[in-house]
Computed example of a mutant assay.
Amino acid sequence: MQDDQSMITIGDAIEDTCRQLEASDVFYGHGTDNPWDEAVQLVLAACSLPADSDRSVIEQPVGEAESGQIERWLRERISKHVPLPYLTGKAWFAGIEFLSDARALVPRSPLAAVIQSAYAPWYAGPEPRRLLDLCAGGGSIGIAAALHDPQLEVVLTDLDSAALTLARENIDKHHLGGRVITVESDLFAALEGQRFDIILSNPPYVDAQDLADMPMEYHHEPPQGLGSGADGLDITRKILASASEYLQPWGLLVVEVGNSWEALEAAYPSVPFTWLEFSEGGHGVFALDAQTLQDSTASLS
């Protein structure tokens, strides 16, 4: 039993956790980019407090059970480099909480900003009614789109059945069963005849060299969600070759390719990719409208 003199507070726990993280060699890239924010998320989750708790919680005492959880998670984080969302079971994307575990990549993508901007100024069609989240993993992109637009119907596709099971759990979490569905599919294979106003995709796009050099944290994630051939473009090539068949005439395709953007430009020098800029960070996201995709058919096939 802890007595009053030995009782630590939330603030104490955060400071101690931060010091231990600072002294470690962990990599930050799964929801935070610094040890303080990582410490805050870890401690608040261990104490069953909301991630957006204000400073009023820092004087709250930490019980024995919560202290033990902090110690266990911190040990896993530092010694095994497990991404924090896999420890807490929670991740945030576009300001929304999602269930997160090793069945799918930890949600992270500048596509959140595209959703929050209502696809402006890149989408020029009528009010979108159908959206496809291609290579959806745990479903964060498509679910965020559905939550930001109550009129939108969303299809989540992925080849990985385990990832789609997690996606369905996230659909249930956000009570979206009437508007968001999952389809197990190798890209567009199971979507014949369907058309969408918007296709969003964060496919595997890491090239072989970057994959080999990635910090240990990324090796806890499913490898099929990261690597995509020698230049990182194996899957993106397939998307580009077929996407126009699944878009409405006014439709928009938005794809994240990260550091492989230079290889994409070199592979398709005649395709006028629109590269999106983000005020809060992120790069390697392109947009192409349906007409441009059709006009570029010869180059993309």
Rank of each mutant, 00 (worst) to 15 (best):
residue 74 L to Q: 06
residue 8 I to M: 12
residue 95 G to E: 02
residue 236 T to E: 03
residue 86 Y to Q: 10
residue 294 Q to E: 13
residue 298 A to H: 13
residue 109 S to D: 08
residue 20 Q to D: 14
residue 106 V to N: 02
residue 26 V to F: 00
residue 280 E to K: 15
residue 152 L to R: 11
residue 50 P to G: 01
residue 173 K to W: 08
residue 32 T to A: 06
residue 240 L to V: 12
residue 209 Q to Y: 10
residue 71 E to G: 08
residue 10 I to A: 05
residue 74 L to I: 04
residue 184 E to K: 15
residue 70 I to V: 11
residue 221 E to W: 09
residue 278 F to A: 08
residue 263 A to P: 10
residue 37 D to C: 06
residue 115 I to K: 07
residue 31 G to W: 03
residue 231 D to T: 09
residue 161 S to A: 15
residue 247 L to W: 08
residue 45 A to C: 12
residue 241 A to P: 04
residue 97 E to I: 07
residue 143 I to G: 06
residue 129 R to Y: 04
residue 207 D to N: 14
residue 75 R to W: 12
residue 129 R to C: 13
residue 170 N to Q: 08
residue 106 V to W: 00
residue 300 L to I: 04
residue 281 G to K: 06
residue 59 E to L: 10
residue 48 S to F: 13
residue 142 G to A: 01
residue 286 F to S: 03
residue 204 P to Q: 12
residue 171 I to A: 02
residue 102 A to S: 15
residue 251 G to H: 10
residue 298 A to E: 15
residue 137 G to F: 05
residue 211 L to D: 14
residue 268 Y to A: 08
residue 237 R to K: 13
residue 213 D to H: 13
residue 129 R to D: 09
residue 154 V to F: 05
residue 207 D to G: 09
residue 48 S to P: 01
residue 14 I to T: 03
residue 34 N to C: 10
residue 276 L to E: 05
residue 96 I to D: 05
residue 233 L to H: 11
residue 93 F to R: 08
residue 160 D to I: 04
residue 293 L to V: 01
residue 196 F to N: 09
residue 98 F to S: 01
residue 130 R to C: 12
residue 219 H to N: 08
residue 152 L to N: 11
residue 232 G to S: 06
residue 256 E to N: 08
residue 139 G to D: 02
residue 135 C to L: 11
residue 130 R to T: 15
residue 240 L to H: 03
residue 188 F to N: 04
residue 19 R to P: 00
residue 106 V to Y: 11
residue 176 L to P: 04
residue 98 F to V: 01
residue 103 R to G: 03
residue 184 E to I: 09
residue 120 A to I: 10
residue 282 G to W: 07
residue 5 Q to H: 14
residue 58 I to G: 00
residue 290 A to S: 14
residue 42 L to D: 05
residue 88 T to P: 06
residue 136 A to D: 13
residue 95 G to D: 04
residue 300 L to D: 06
residue 256 E to R: 11
residue 78 I to F: 00
residue 295 D to R: 13
residue 289 D to E: 09
residue 40 V to T: 07
residue 83 P to D: 04
residue 109 S to A: 04
residue 72 R to C: 05
residue 209 Q to K: 13
residue 133 D to R: 00
residue 159 L to G: 01
residue 198 I to F: 07
residue 257 V to T: 08
residue 41 Q to H: 14
residue 107 P to R: 12
residue 90 K to I: 13
